[in-house]
C-alpha cells in the first residue's frame, strides 16, 4: 500500500476519501438524526436526471446536476415541512422520475455513450485534481454552516416544535441544510458514485450514534469511521484489483454488522418499552 502512494491517482483518491468522509460524516449525521435517509436517496437519484440533462444539453456536469438536485431537494423539503406523513411517497415518485428522465435524456444524446456504472459506483481512483478543490470548498462551507448553526441544528433535529417556539428559523435552516445535502451528494457522486454516497451518508452515522453523547461527537466519530472504510476499501481494491466503490461499501457494511453483533453481546440496553418504567 505504501508504494502505491507514489502514484498521484492514489494520493488523490486518499485525499478525496478524506474530504468525502468529512462531508458525509457531518451531513450524514444531520440526515440520520432527522430521519432523512430516504430524502437523501431521493435527491441522489433525482441527481441522475441532472447528469442526463447535462450530457443532453452539452453543459458542464456540475451545472446540470447541481441545478436539478437542488430543485428536487427544495421541492422535497417543502413537502416534508408541509405534510410529514405522506412525504415518503412523494419522494419515491421524484426518485423514480429522476432516474427515468436521466436514462431517456442519455438515450437521446447523439453519439455519446456515457459509462453509467461510473456514476453508480464512482471512480475514486480517477479523481482529477480540480475535483479536490471543489471538495475542499464544500468541506469548509459545511463545517462553517454547522458550527454557525450548531445549537439551532441540535434543537431543530431533536424537537422542531420547541425550536419554533424559541424563535429559531426552523424552515430556513431546514432548507439550507437539505440544500447542503444536495450539493454534497452531487460533488461526491462524481468521486464515489451514487450508491456509495448513500452508504457513506448513512452507515457511519448510524454506527456512531450509539457510541456518541452529542451530535458533534457523532459527526466526528462518523467522519473517522468513514475515513477508515475509505482507506481499508481502497487497500482491498488496490490489492485484489476490485472496484473501489464496491469494496468501500462492503467495508462499511461489515462494520455495520460487527457493531450490531457487538451491541447485542456487550451493550445490555434496557428494553425500549417505556410504559412501565419507574423513577430512579
Amino acid at each position: 500500500m505504501i508504494d502505491a502512494l507514489h502514484f498521484e491517482f492514489m494520493r488523490n483518491a486518499l485525499i478525496a476519501g478524506c474530504f468525502a468522509s468529512l462531508i458525509c460524516g457531518v451531513i450524514g449525521s444531520f440526515v440520520v438524526v432527522n430521519r432523512l435517509v430516504f430524502l437523501a436517496g431521493g435527491i441522489a437519484h433525482a441527481a441522475f436526471g441532472g447528469i442526463g440533462l447535462a450530457f443532453f444539453l452539452g453543459i458542464p456536469y456540475l451545472l446540470g446536476t447541481l441545478g436539478v438536485s437542488l430543485m428536487a431537494a427544495m421541492i422535497m423539503t417543502a413537502v416534508v415541512l408541509n405534510n410529514k406523513d405522506r412525504a415518503d411517497t412523494f419522494i419515491g415518485i421524484l426518485w423514480a422520475i429522476g432516474m427515468a428522465t436521466g436514462i431517456i435524456l442519455l438515450d437521446m444524446t447523439p453519439g455519446y455513450n456515457v459509462n453509467l456504472m461510473s456514476y453508480l459506483f464512482g471512480s475514486i481512483l480517477a479523481v482529477p485534481g480540480s475535483d479536490l478543490w471543489w471538495m475542499l470548498g464544500l468541506s469548509v462551507f459545511t463545517l462553517f454552516s454547522t458550527g454557525f448553526f450548531y445549537r439551532d441544528l441540535l434543537a431543530i433535529s431533536y424537537d422542531d416544535e420547541f425550536a419554533r417556539l424559541r424563535g429559531v428559523p426552523v424552515n430556513l435552516i431546514y432548507f439550507l441544510f437539505i440544500g447542503l445535502v444536495a450539493v454534497s451528494i452531487v460533488i461526491i457522486i462524481r468521486v464515489v458514485g451514487l450508491i456509495l454516497v448513500i452508504a457513506l451518508l448513512t452507515i457511519p452515522p448510524y454506527i456512531a450514534e450509539k457510541y456518541s453523547n452529542s451530535l458533534a461527537q457523532m459527526m466526528g466519530l462518523s467522519t473517522l469511521l468513514a475515513v477508515l472504510f475509505n482507506f481499508s476499501g481502497l487497500w482491498v481494491a488496490y490489492t485484489y484489483n476490485l472496484t473501489s466503490g464496491a469494496t468501500i461499501i462492503l467495508m462499511a457494511a461489515a462494520a455495520f454488522f460487527i457493531s450490531m453483533i457487538f451491541d447485542a453481546l456487550f451493550l445490555k440496553k434496557p428494553p425500549t418499552l417505556i410504559s412501565n418504567e419507574q423513577n430512579n
Binding site: 454557525f148 448553526f149 431533536y158 424537537d159 424563535g167 456518541s212 452529542s214 451530535l215
Partner: peptide, 23 residues
C-alpha cells in the same frame, strides 16, 4: 420521541435558552 438521539440532559435544557448568539 427521538429515542436514539445522542444528546445530554444539559443540552436539552439549554434549548430553553435559545436563541443564542452565533459562534
Amino acid at each position: 420521541f427521538n429515542k436514539s438521539f445522542p444528546i445530554s440532559v444539559m443540552d436539552v435544557v439549554l434549548m430553553g435558552r435559545l436563541p443564542f448568539h452565533r459562534w
